[in-house]
Design a protein around this nucleic acid. Sequence first.
DNA 1: CCGAATGTACGCCATTGGCGCCCAATTGTC
DNA 2: GACAATTGGGCGCCAATGGCGTACATTCGG
Lengths: 96, 96
Amino acid sequence: MSKFGRELIDSLKQAVKHAEGRKVAGMRVTVVEAPDVKAIRRSLRMSQQRFAASYRIPLATIKNWEQKRRMPDAPAAAYLRAIARKPKEVAEAVAG
Amino acid sequence: MSKFGRELIDSLKQAVKHAEGRKVAGMRVTVVEAPDVKAIRRSLRMSQQRFAASYRIPLATIKNWEQKRRMPDAPAAAYLRAIARKPKEVAEAVAG
DNA sequence: CCGAATGTACGCCATTGGCGCCCAATTGTC
DNA sequence: GACAATTGGGCGCCAATGGCGTACATTCGG
């Protein structure tokens, strides 16, 4: 069996799974749209540095999110949602 | 130069950097101890499923954290901290 | 003019997120 | 007691993210 042959078969298997309505492992389909980190931060009138410190997120990670180089994963997206809606409460909760 | 030789040299370079107090790229040193997800969840008297749903974290991720198979990354740790201290406020914030 | 602060951009790589699957333990419900 | 449902532990797999470094552009106050 050639390498090409194996790859072709794998592709077909995935296609079949798709057709069956099953999910293909390793294929992530983003359902919810990405939270706009920059908008959230700006609405709080904070620099990236202060925002990062206030919510205990590494500065580099904030930068990645704002530049759309990385998408916040599910827990991070939830966290950002919480921050966007109750900035003060969350900041207090993580402080100290 | 053999493969083993190169690897040995790289290891020595890292050791030198360590000795110099510099940080070695790619080597993560966890500073804060891992949050005890199970304890947090239990104190809220929720099943893994409800906890996951309430805070919008995939069930599999909760399992990984509780079984210590994965460590929550920095944003996740901050989120858990917020949850631990202001469970109701955070739950309300992420709901809807 | 220059240094500090802020933010954009990108490389690198170990670790995590996220998914599926299976199985044991616990908790109902008849 | 028997049976089904819920809960949670354990593990393999893979792409994507987290985290850190470095360099460069822009803004701003002295």
